[in-house]
Amino acid sequence: MTPPMAQPLIDTVPLRVDQVGQRYGKKWVLRGCTFDLRPHAVTALIGPNGAGKSTLMSAVAGLHASTEGRIEVQGAAVTASPSHPDLGYLAQDKPLYRQYRVRDMLEIARHLNARWDAVHADELVDAAGLDRSQRVRTLSGGQRTRLALALVLARRPSVLLLDEPLADLDPLARLEVQQTLMTEVADTGMTVLMSSHILGEVVDLCEDVLVMGTAVGGGGRITLAGPIDEILATHRVLVGPGTSPGDLGFLPESCIVEEQHAARQTTLLVDRPVGPLPEGWTIADPSLDDVVLAHLRAGKVKP
C-alpha cells in the first residue's frame, strides 16, 4: 500500500523563516532573513553567490541550528537533526554514495526513512530510465540528479527544498528534471522552495519569488518577496530626460528601487504605480529580470 503524503494543517504556513541568522566564528553569513512560503506554491529563492541561500536551506533542513531566529515547518519549530518528517531536501551537490548501485541507494534510503513510498521511488527511477544495477559513480549528472530527486520525493514531503537543482545540467537533463518536478507538484500540491543564482533557470517553474541580498554585515535579507504576477504588476520602469538625483521630487523616494543617470537619460525602477509624470517621462512594464536584478543591486549596496 502506498503511504499517504503528509497532509499539512489547514491555514498553516508551510515554511516560516523569522529573523534567522547564521554566524561562523565572527562572520555572519546570513542575518535577518525573514519570509513565509505560500502553501502549495513553488517559490524561487534568487540571490548571488554568497548570499546565504545554501546556508539557509541547510538550516531549514536541520543540518545545523541557526545562530539566531526561528524556523518553522508546518507550524513546528525546526531543530537540528533529524530532519522534519514533512520536509524533503535536495542539496546542491546531490550527495549519493557513489560506490553503490542504484538499487543499493534505494534500499539505503528505505532504511533511513520512517516514511518511504517504495512504489513511488520505483516509478521515478523507471521514469528516469535508470538501470538499477548501474553504479552511482557511472551515472551522468542528470541521472544522478533524478536519482537524488527520487530519493527525496519518495519520502512524500509536503515541503520540498531544492538547492540549485538545475545547476550543471545540460538543457535536456534540465528539462527532464523540470518536468519531474512539475508533475510531482501538480500531483501532490507540495510547497517548493527552489534556489538559484540564475533567475532564468527557475522562473518558468515558479509562481513566487524571493530575492536575497548580500548586504554588508551578512547576506540573507530578503529584498523582494511575493507572487511574480503581483511583482510585475506593481513595478514600473520610468524613462525621462537626463537629470540629477535631486530633481526627482515628483516621486516619493521610498518607491525608487534603482535609478540610473546618463547624460541625456534617466531610468528609474519603482516598486508601485505612480501618478502623472512630468513632461518628457515615459512609463513601461519591466521584465522580471529587470526587477530582480535591480533588487539584487539595491540589496548589495544597502546595509
Binding site: 536541520g62 543540518l63 533529524p82 530532519s83 518528517p85 542539496a91 551537490d93 533511513l112 516514511r115 530519493l151
Partner: peptide, 8 residues
C-alpha cells in the same frame, strides 16, 4: 548531508 536529512 544525505544521511542526516532523512529520518535519522
Amino acid at each position: 548531508v544525505l544521511a542526516l536529512t532523512q529520518s535519522v
